[in-house]
Amino acid sequence: MELRQFCSQSRVVIVAGKGGVGKTTVTAALALAATRAGLSALICEVEGKSGLAAAFGSDALEYDELHLDDRLTARTLAPDDAMVDYLESHGMKRFSHRLAKSGALDVVATAVPGMKDILVLGKIKSLEQLPAADLIVVDAPAAGHAITFLLAAQGLLDAIRVGPIRKQATEVVEMLTDATRCQVMLVTLPEETPVNELIETAFAVEDRAGVALGPVVVNGCMAPLRDQPDSITSLMAAGFSLTTSTQAIEAVAFRSSRHAMQEIQIARLAEQLPLPQIHLPQLLTAAIGRAELNKLADAMAHQIELLQ
């Protein structure tokens, strides 16, 4: 599929997955890939703690949009900010700060299940309507919470019968359940437990929240070596020392065993979840910076083009 077409399928893509699978880097890679197709992209951080800003060499993200790169901006969507924003834009400016300061906001948010989630999703919806960018990529809360997050609007419709929040929830449900407006991209690692959890999350997102799933991203894939040397002897014959040759063969074996283990999990995922997969390489670095994000964006763009 053409990259630009892929990134235009829905204006909002919510990236979800359990902690530690690289949700934030996938979010950044997708947004960067979109900008390469000539689109503008906005990254929204819901939990607001990620190393995204640091990876771009930028200051910490704030509620106001921050410019990261050509056609690429990012912002946080912390629930408290979203709540104040909501009150202000609904003619309650006078109360918003008082509510926030008195702690009454906590009480109100507690009184209404999913209130904070709905405010965040409502804000995403208003960014979508503007539209704030050609593609809005949302770095969702970690796994278990992602489902609660996506179900918040429906839960709220059951709890609240009238008023502006109900209207907000209705509009959010409309957006979430319309595949041409919003999709969820699930991220996992090619390992046993993350794959199990991804499968559970996938069914919950589709069946319970009614949100369309885009391709699944398998992050941290170790590519096999294309050119496998035979043995220590052949390396030594090529002029490498015994130590280097031995270590090189050990490293090759290590890589092959990791790869084989991952292949089993990738195959199992394909069998249990009939969704296209995007494989991103494991980066052999201890930290993610701009160069690494570029590599991931390249890989993402390439894999998208391979999709049917």
């Binding site: 070596l225 050119d227 040397p229 390396l235 490498f240 490293a251 201890a286």
Partner: peptide
């Protein structure tokens, strides 16, 4: 520098790089 494009040696270099970064961290 030694590898001359040998995939096994380049792979070793990559894993050495990870090990060094991890140790620093």
């Amino acid at each position: 520098a030694l590898a001359h494009g040998n995939a096994a040696i380049l792979n070793l270099a990559d894993f050495r790089e990870i090990a060094i970064r991890e140790r620093e961290t």
